[in-house]
Simulated assay, not measured.
Amino acid sequence: MADWPSGMTWGTRATLVQFSSAFCQPCRATRRTLDEISSMVEGVAHIEIDAEDHLDLVRELDIRRTPTVLVLDAQGRIVRRASGQPRRADVIAALGAAIA
């Protein structure tokens, strides 16, 4: 299991973990999309991690670009991962797989 940063609030049903970097324009758009989706689905949390501040975790999870989004189920297992700005429909479909 990954060594996640302390103080993160996990979703009770699923968690959307976004790896971002400071000057990444697609990261900002991804943040808006994931915030919107997580607020619509009860028990889903969105966590954003600055990739540059957590290089050990980035290496452990083989994060190669930002944004990268991991969809975790209630037990913290990675159900889906995507690099680049995700489409809203793809995130919703991935959440369905995580919650099922």
Rank of each mutant, 00 (worst) to 15 (best):
S6M: 13
S6G: 15
S6I: 14
M8S: 02
T9L: 14
T9C: 04
T9Y: 07
W10A: 11
W10N: 03
A14R: 01
L16R: 08
L16H: 01
V17M: 13
Q18V: 03
A22C: 03
C24R: 01
Q25M: 04
P26E: 03
T30K: 00
T30F: 00
R31E: 12
R31S: 06
R32F: 04
R32G: 07
T33L: 05
D35Y: 11
I37L: 12
S38V: 12
S39Y: 08
S39L: 06
V41A: 06
V41L: 07
E42L: 09
E42N: 14
G43D: 08
G43M: 01
A45K: 12
E52G: 14
E52C: 03
H54L: 01
L55M: 15
D56Q: 14
L57A: 06
R59N: 13
R59K: 10
R59D: 09
R59C: 08
E60H: 12
R64Q: 15
R65G: 10
T66C: 13
T66E: 06
T68E: 02
T68Q: 09
T68F: 02
G76W: 00
R77P: 06
R77S: 12
I78M: 10
V79T: 07
R80I: 07
A82L: 14
A82I: 14
S83P: 04
G84A: 08
Q85Y: 05
P86A: 00
P86I: 03
P86H: 05
R88S: 12
R88Q: 11
I92G: 11
I92L: 15
I92N: 07
A94T: 09
L95V: 13
L95C: 08
L95W: 09
